[in-house]
Design a protein around this nucleic acid. Structure first.
Ligand SMILES: [Zn+2]
Ligand SMILES: [Zn+2]
Ligand SMILES: [Zn+2]
Ligand SMILES: [Zn+2]
Lengths: 150, 150
DNA sequence: GTCTAATTGAGAAATATTTTCATTAAAGTT
DNA sequence: AACTTTAATGAAAATATTTCTCAATTAGAC
């Protein structure tokens, strides 16, 4: 139980009747510890460090399972690169992505909840979740842009 | 010039010094006409209907170019399926995705602009764009869910 | 029409993902 | 703790996706 997020994810797996195996625990722990938003390759490489024998297929299968069980979230910030993050209890945040250097920071302000019920009324959907990604230039890249133009 | 969105995209290509070729026009027209949010396979198949000789590589290259030039937007609504839509002048909308049947509808209400400058102040990023996807059940799937439970 | 460089299509190559199946191991039962 | 059952795993093969290479084509400039 590395931390709370790992604990919650492991309990959820058990609760839904899945076995808590070594590979799964290693993957969950890696995700729970990760401060960035790793992609498939980073996850695979990172886990091999502490679980050398793990197979690629197991990582794919486990990420798929965690997504399906709504324990994991996938975000796309560039055209074809899926990034992952474990859903943490009581954490709601969104992403601000620099179009210059691809750095990602998170922000907590969320205005969607204010219009959510209005959208539910208009569309007749029942809304359960949402993701929001904002794009722009980080302070560093704004500076670089000035320099480029001379 | 199928419609306004196609016209705008073609002009933008020219303006930035790219050649307006048959394949590119066919791809842009397909995207401009498309009411749904097609993925790569649909785009390729759809374009072959009116431009049979087009190669897969050209479609990949053109989508990449349009993304780079900010004429095209890619969204991810399911784990590993990228969907595309041409950016239309004066159109700002977001997506509401049914987790039951994957149907996507669009909504225009956007609350992000209200907090955008606040986030810019706090983070020192300059924000240029954003995407928002909401997830839930469409009216039909809410009904099916009731039926399933008996 | 001629010229030039960008663009294209076909196929090869490189990557990424899924499937198959014999083996392993988690979790429940005695 | 040994026994049993069945899900889960790893390795390799099979698929699928994306990029690259290069000779041939073609848009746009003159
Ligand atoms: Zn995040
Ligand atoms: Zn939010
Ligand atoms: Zn849309
Ligand atoms: Zn918006």
């Amino acid at each position: 139980m590395i931390n709370n997020a790992s604990k919650a994810a492991q309990e959820e797996l058990k609760r839904k009747g899945y076995k808590l195996t070594g590979p799964r625990i290693a993957i969950i722990n890696y995700l729970a510890e990760s401060q960035e938003h790793p992609d498939m390759q980073q996850i695979f490489a990172g886990i091999r460090a502490e679980y050398p024998g793990i197979g690629m297929a197991t990582v794919y299968r486990t990420l798929g399972l965690l997504l399906e069980l709504d324990i994991l979230r996938a975000i796309t910030v560039n055209k074809n690169q899926l990034l992952y993050e474990l859903k943490k209890p009581d954490d709601h945040h969104h992403h601000l992505v620099c179009t210059g250097c691809s750095q990602i920071i998170e922000f907590g302000s969320c205005s969607f909840k204010h219009i959510s019920s209005e959208i539910e009324t208009v569309t007749r959907y029942s809304i359960e979740d949402h993701t929001l990604e904002a794009y722009g230039l980080c302070p560093q890249c704004q500076g670089d842009f000035q320099v480029e133009r001379g």
